[in-house]
């Protein structure tokens, strides 16, 4: 079963994602895609680590190439988050590449193997601001990736201040 969780910044997506796997008895894997770059990132990572503490997750840090992660059949996975993964894949070595196919295929592969797959993403295109070309492209590509993942997900849930709003499938 594959579940996509979306919403704006700090809307309770992670907490909700973890809750879905609360009663899962098999192996639980947490794939972290955020690069620990700078003080704010460290604080965010530390906050998330504390939140996961004692819930039985093994953390794997993987900033790009998520398709390479080995999974066992019976595991449950949280992948957090597509927004960071997309930026990491898009902007490297001073050039911009379109990682849509790579990311969608990578997430799809993990979803096929994992018993339960929970994907956390981000909504970034509702502020009406005209950004520079690179950022505008990022907004567009992330939107496209979200649509593609949503297509093969069983459930799609939007979080608003911690409240889950069902967009597709069932609330977990």
């Amino acid at each position: 079963m594959t579940t996509l969780i979306t919403g704006g910044s700090k809307c309770g997506k992670s907490r909700y994602a973890e809750r879905i796997l609360d009663n899962y008895l098999g192996n639980k894997l947490y794939i972290a895609t955020m690069k620990p770059y700078g003080k704010e990132a460290y604080i965010a990572i530390e906050r998330h680590r504390k939140m996961r503490d004692g819930k039985g997750f093994v953390t794997v840090e993987k900033y790009t190439d998520i398709h390479e992660i080995p999974l066992t059949d019976n595991c449950a996975v949280i992948l957090e988050c597509i927004g960071n993964l997309c930026a990491n894949e898009m902007f490297c070595d001073n050039k911009i590449i379109d990682p849509t196919e790579k990311i969608v295929n990578g997430v799809y592969r993990l979803s096929c193997i994992a018993k339960k797959m929970v994907i956390v993403t981000n909504q970034v295109g509702s502020d009406g601001i005209y950004y520079s070309e690179g950022t505008a492209k990022y907004i567009h590509i992330l939107g496209e990736i979200n649509q593609r993942i949503s297509e093969f997900s069983d459930n799609v849930i939007e979080c608003v201040y911690g409240i889950p709003i069902l967009q597709k499938g069932v609330l977990l």
Binding site: G8, G125, S126, D127, G128, I129
Partner: peptide, 22 residues
Amino acid sequence: ICEVGSGIVPIEKNEREWREIV
């Protein structure tokens, strides 16, 4: 029509006005 109002109110007057009118 895009939803454009879910961010910070822009400092620039033209941008602010545009968002309101949208």
